[in-house]
Design a protein around this nucleic acid. Structure first.
Length: 115
RNA sequence: CGAGUUGGCCGGGUGAUCGCGGCGUGAGCAAUCGCAUCGAGGAAAGUCCGGACUCCACAGGGCAAGGUGGUGGGUAACGCCCACCCGGGGAAACCCGCGGGACAGUGCCACAGAAAACAGACCGCCUUGAGCAAUCAAGGUAAGGGUGAAACGGCGGUGUAAGAGACCACCAGCACUGCAGGUGACUGCAGUGGCUAGGUAAACCCCACUUGGAGCAAGGUCAAGAGGAUCGGGCAACCGAUCUGCGCAGGCGAGCGGCCCGCUCAAUGUCUGCGGGUAGACCGCACCAGGUCACUGGCAACAGUGGCCGCAGAUGGAUGAUCACCGAAUCGGUCACCGAGAGGUGCCGAGGAACAGAAUCCGGCUUACAGGCCAACUCGUCCA
RNA sequence: GCCCCUUUAGCUCAUUGGUAGAGCGCUCCCUUGGUAAGGGCGAGGUACCGGGUCCGAUUCCCGGAAGGGGCU
């Protein structure tokens, strides 16, 4: 799981990231990334609407996405803000882990090419 | 063995690696790190009842409004639970019932039918009168007919012009009285009375009991700063609206969420209008109507005594991810055994677990739920 | 988390316990050389679902489902 220091907690950060960040669709999820340039821990937030499923499905989806991020948390650039939006069907997706990891890799390429 | 009824329990398991949240403890100025330990449910769900707790000054009286509704008990309380009564269903175990009052009053009962709630009379039956006759008029009657969910007791006889509880026997049912049983709802028996009373209160209503309002986003403490929060629009800067707080101006009443009484407060109050647009932390918060075992009382719900146990506490919201092994349902088979067959059992292969995730906490109710286990009881068949 | 509201024809909504209606839309016909407008005929309903009360329920009572709203 993600340590507490890597979790996004405030509504302004969510709004900034989803509105001004780069959007990368990847399978069952959509990633929003925003590079702030500040020398802080990267932060990750989740958006999982009711269309994904009931409470059990939504929580299981959130845990799997967080576990996928935790596996490569050291590869995230410092100061970056990430918001993951789960699409309907993500709860039953077999490739959720790979969707997240490959999305992170493509997002890093995009950030480096357009600083 | 088969069919069924009721109650209770479980509802994936084991291991490895990597993680997350709380509490405790040790180190560190601190960030943080180490160790130890705990970490979802029977419904955590729906939010339908009841309480605890907090605020509304106190939580007062009357009216209004709402709720409950057989009896007795259990409980902190309940619309819940237990036992019994009554009514209905079932062959039985057993199940279902908002189950007070229609002799306080008011309303309603469509269509059909003569008539739908004082009893009356369409067809009919009978008597008298008129007429050649068909029939008509006056009167008696309510057995028979048809309508309807429901038609003013049922059946048989006496009686009569025809009939009628007009009278009689039996039966059903009502009211009253007495006796017996029961704490009681009520039940049983005997007698008397009048021959008979429609339904609806989940229509108004009456009776008995009962309910003050809001809800942990309740509410409290602290810090910061003159702001803050939410919603809508915009790529964005930002713009607009509402609420709270602050500032200014004006009014004099305001509160006890319906009204009246009564009570309380009132210029540091309260209401209205205008103005310009800065927010987090902590407490509440997890040890109690607690769980479990034994004994005692009780038909039971439950209560009492004693021993043992400590059992989630997040806040963009922890309780997980990956891998390996085992694995229920289900599906398949040129397989084996049993069987007349339908099928059953075994073996092999595939497959890979229902409904569902705490958010102030308890007691219930209701709803969802693949599959499995246990116990008691009823009926049927066979054997001893 | 807490507190409320709604559900009737394809859509928007009516309807004292007694055969469910209106407007728009739809089908067919008339009118026109043709279309629109206009006129006429008609179809279309598990009254969200399941129980109960009643002779009878869209309506009254109980339970559920779906959709929507509010709070600081």
């Amino acid at each position: 799981m993600l340590p507490a220091s890597n979790r996004m907690r405030s509504a302004p950060q969510f709004r900034e990231t989803t509105r001004r960040g780069v959007r990368i669709p990847s399978g069952a999820v959509v990633l929003h990334v925003l590079a702030t340039g500040v020398s802080e821990e990267p932060r990750v937030g989740l958006t999982i609407s009711k269309s994904v499923g009931n409470s059990v499905v939504r929580h299981r989806t959130a845990r799997r996405i967080r576990a996928a991020f935790a596996s490569c948390v050291n590869d995230l650039p410092r100061g970056s803000l990430w918001v993951v939006r789960a699409l309907p069907g993500a709860g039953e997706s077999e490739s959720l882990h790979n969707d997240v990891v490959s999305g992170i890799a493509r997002a890093r390429l995009k950030l480096e090419s357009r600083p």
